[in-house]
Design a binder for these strands. Structure first.
Length: 105
DNA sequence: ATTTTGACTATGT
DNA sequence: AACATAGCCAAAA
């Protein structure tokens, strides 16, 4: 377990309900400005084990980044269940993750 | 050791 | 706004 991984986990765990963050933001906060893809891997590998709110992580455009349609639908459902507006093309309102970033900065 | 592969991003058309 | 390109970087093949 690298320090970077630990920081990523901590950051994701700190995302408040109803807010979302992007892979890039998380990577930057964890000290690796170009590490967005590593965040993806960490999330995929450790997500269930550490009970992280994986569904609160979206890409830079504010959209659900899951390739698999079924998984994307689940994420969309989970987000909407906590009050995040998600459009039919799985776009998340941008205000929500900007707020999350300030709280963690 | 080298290549491929992404739940990515920034930049330029 | 949609598409292409080029960086990116660790894990898997």
């Amino acid at each position: 377990m690298t320090p970077f991984t630990e920081r990523v986990i901590g950051i994701i765990r700190s995302i408040p309900e109803g807010k979302v963050m992007t892979y890039g933001q998380i990577a930057r906060l964890a000290g690796s400005p170009r590490g967005a893809r590593q965040v993806v891997r960490i999330l995929h590998a450790m997500g269930s084990k550490y009970k992280l709110p994986w569904h609160r992580v979206v890409n830079a455009k504010g959209e659900i980044a899951i390739a698999d349609d079924e998984g994307a639908e689940l994420q969309s459902f989970l987000l909407q269940a906590e009050g995040v507006r998600v459009s039919a093309d799985r776009l998340v309102s941008l205000e929500q993750y900007q707020a999350a970033m300030e709280e963690n900065a």
